[in-house]
Computed example of a mutant assay.
Amino acid sequence: MNRTRRDRDPQGRARSARPRDGLGRPLPYGAPGVARQPEGVVRTARETVREAQRLLDAGMPFHAHEVFEDAWKSGAEDERDLWQGLAQLAVGLTHAARGNAAGGARLLLRGAERITAHGPAHGIDVSGLAAWARELAVRTEGPVDPAAEAPRLTAP
């Protein structure tokens, strides 16, 4: 049997060492890629929102998803749906930017439903984000510019 060796982190968990582009797609080994978000970073809610917004504005929704993922894994249990929903919005935008309109729309709608069910917290504009996600899900037909489509996480 031919088995390929998997990349592992220091704890032995499978972790791809392949470089990735700004939308999180794997590139060939040795190719220049975009620095990945460190995993397992514990941030305050305010820091999470600020870092995710920076990444969204830079056209890197895949990386923003990783920030939200850290928040749902390390945050309070009663806020897990909020962070998961925000991660789904970021991944939905990632898929839309990659040209996967149907997959992106599904994730945008799922994320909108999840954050709306949670309600507002930490200054996050839940109703505005849900409206943004629903509107983008309906009109996306091909690849979108992730920086141009980046949502505002907080109300102005």
Rank of each mutant, 00 (worst) to 15 (best):
152 R>Q: 12
59 G>V: 05
139 R>D: 01
13 R>F: 10
74 S>M: 06
141 E>I: 11
109 L>I: 11
83 W>H: 10
97 A>S: 15
113 E>D: 15
12 G>C: 12
132 W>L: 08
59 G>I: 05
88 Q>R: 15
53 Q>C: 04
90 A>Y: 00
22 G>N: 04
84 Q>T: 11
117 A>D: 12
119 G>Q: 07
117 A>V: 10
33 G>N: 05
20 R>D: 00
65 H>L: 12
97 A>D: 00
53 Q>R: 08
135 E>M: 08
108 L>R: 01
77 E>M: 11
95 H>D: 06
106 R>F: 10
37 Q>M: 14
67 V>I: 14
19 P>Q: 12
30 G>K: 09
156 P>G: 11
122 H>T: 02
30 G>W: 10
148 A>F: 05
25 R>F: 01
45 A>I: 02
14 A>D: 15
90 A>Q: 01
83 W>N: 06
154 T>M: 09
91 V>F: 04
56 L>K: 02
88 Q>E: 03
26 P>Y: 10
56 L>G: 01
60 M>P: 00
1 M>L: 13
22 G>E: 13
65 H>S: 03
35 A>N: 08
138 V>F: 03
137 A>R: 03
55 L>P: 02
54 R>L: 05
48 T>C: 06
52 A>F: 02
73 K>W: 14
123 G>N: 06
76 A>R: 15
36 R>Q: 14
97 A>R: 01
34 V>Y: 01
54 R>I: 02
58 A>F: 00
147 A>P: 03
106 R>E: 06
138 V>C: 04
102 A>I: 12
107 L>T: 01
67 V>S: 03
83 W>P: 01
65 H>Q: 14
62 F>S: 06
115 I>Y: 02
6 R>N: 11
139 R>F: 01
30 G>T: 05
125 D>I: 08
75 G>I: 09
87 A>L: 13
123 G>H: 05
